[in-house]
Design a protein around this nucleic acid. Sequence first.
DNA 1: GCAAGGTC
Length: 699
Amino acid sequence: MRGSSKVMARRRLGRSRSSAGCTAGHGYVLVIAEKPKAARKIAEALSNSTRPKLCRLGKVPYWLVSWNGRLHVIASAAGHLFGLTTDERGFPVFSYYWAPLWRIDGSASYTKRFFEVLEKLAGRATVFINACDYDIEGSVIGYMIIKSLGDVKRAYRAKFSALTRQDIQRAFRRLEPLDWDMIEAGLARHELDWIWGVNVSRALMDSVSRVTGRRVVLSAGRVQSPTLIEAVTRDKEINLFVPLPSFAVNVTIALGDYKHTGRLAVYETRQDALKAAEKLRRARFLKVVSYREWRERLLPPYPFNLGDLQAEAARLFGYSPMFTQRVAEQLYLEGLISYPRTNSQKIPESVDVATIVRNLARISEYHNLVGYLLRATGGILRPRNGPKDDPAHPAIHPTGEVPSTPLTGAQKRIYDLIVRRFLASMAPPAILARAHARLAATGIGSLELSGLRILDHGWLRIYYFAAPKESQIPRLRVGDIVDVKRVSVRIAYSGPPEPYTKASLVKWMERVGIGTEATRARIVELLFERGYLASRGKRIEVTELGYAVAWVLARYFPQLTSVELTRYFEEHLEAIRARKTSRSAVIDEAKRLLSSILAEFKKGAMESVGMELAKALNIIKPRNTCIICQREATEAGLCRFHQEALQRLLQGYMEWRRRAGVDCLEFLQKMAQLSSAGRWVREVAAYFVKQGKCPFSAL
DNA sequence: GCAAGGTC
């Protein structure tokens, strides 16, 4: 085979280099970490005087240490090494089993070498310790390895939530039996996600192939589907948006050099606004009714968790959450930053911030910033911790390692962001001078003026990305009279909701509590891969297929359209953990529910759902097309979307007539033009403008 | 082939 001799040579070299002192013999304790980085930390923590002996099998490292007078071999997984799979086709499918991930998942081939090393090391071990992350998945990762390659009867759990010598040693002095309740809850999580996801995905795919004979990859799941529905709901509101008019009375004032134009009052109708404007022109002045100056402390930011980092990198550099995550993972593997897949905004005491800060000063870019930080704090370095926490990892922070090879542009930016955020979190607050004035015109409204100056930049010197915009207003006194230079009435339109971006959709997932740090960005990308979502610049749009899948789910699998299914899972997993119920009881209940809805789907919905999806996929052409677009016409010659847009236009027209006194065609022309009007709304309006007729004939 | 979850 191509290149095999080279590979073999490297393998031999790897073996021979590490073989001295690496033959552990029999009867050792095998410690299983979740990842190589953690294994190394554990090895270091358990070797009191001597350095742990680093060994390798192929590319996979493991360590030998003597702890408590016994040889401990510390090896590592690489996340899950086992996953659920089935040999059955079709649905419903409830017969699944655990298998090595490298056998069942083509993208997880890297797990094979970890699997093989653990297999080899487990064979000669007498005791097994699950030292994976102290969370539900860590319990499953270690358990599956010990169960498949070792012996659960000779196994223990080490529980530590920080990778520090102290915490690790404490955990190894107080080893506990395997945490069966956590394991059962974790196994149940895997099974529940599998039976829901695989069955409903197959129901969608099979209905398409039933109707068209084609195989198309479609999917649904506890996390991806509510996320799709959220994007659909927003996209629909934007596409159906009918802007409403309002009339603002704007006023220009001048005080010496200071000139300002602002909004005094807003009216629904033009007449009311014109009346107020006329009144104001006659009065010709505003009176200061309040004036206040004060100082404000702007507290430093929390150190980053992954979601905050992704949001900031999107805001500042336009990076997608997945891209930011990939770059952060590279920096982590280079040893430059701590573990990035964390929800924590806290830097615990166990992190030696003083040493990290001192080391950062050796990087020329940060030398002066560190100098400032040490002067400004008197050397007392305490990060401002945020409320969010993570069972297994602290907030993202630099390690203090100096980059050995030059960083790429994106790596440099992300690293810089992390370093500055970390340093800023320990810096003094910024001091702002603020001023606010209210200038009233009796019986009409008032003009608000706000001023802001930064008196002391504090942490903003370091994390300058968050600096507020400065503005000055004149110093006023209550009772002062200010001349009005100009009065105008301007029409304003209400605006649609903000379209989602990848970053804001990930933030939504975080806010409602679905997915994890490691999966949210990936699941958003998956919705693009499936063809449910598409990008238009930074904004997310839902495709025809996305709308069709959302419609099918809402009708036949409503459980998957809401984040409530995650809440339901969480409650039941917690009950398993508390031994109030059992895994089998929870799984049986899920199977019963799924059996019944899947059977009903199979009996009565395959054809219609297949047709619906096939039309969205453009495999089947609709019989009657909409008079405006290529979609199927459902009512009055219009498709579902344009029909709904027409309804919204009717409501909007009544409001426009009342507020602005327009007639039907004027209104439709306006709607066809306004860029804030939804796409479907504009299309319907343009159609009737072209026809020269008003669709609201009943009026 | 399909989930969501870990990590290279």
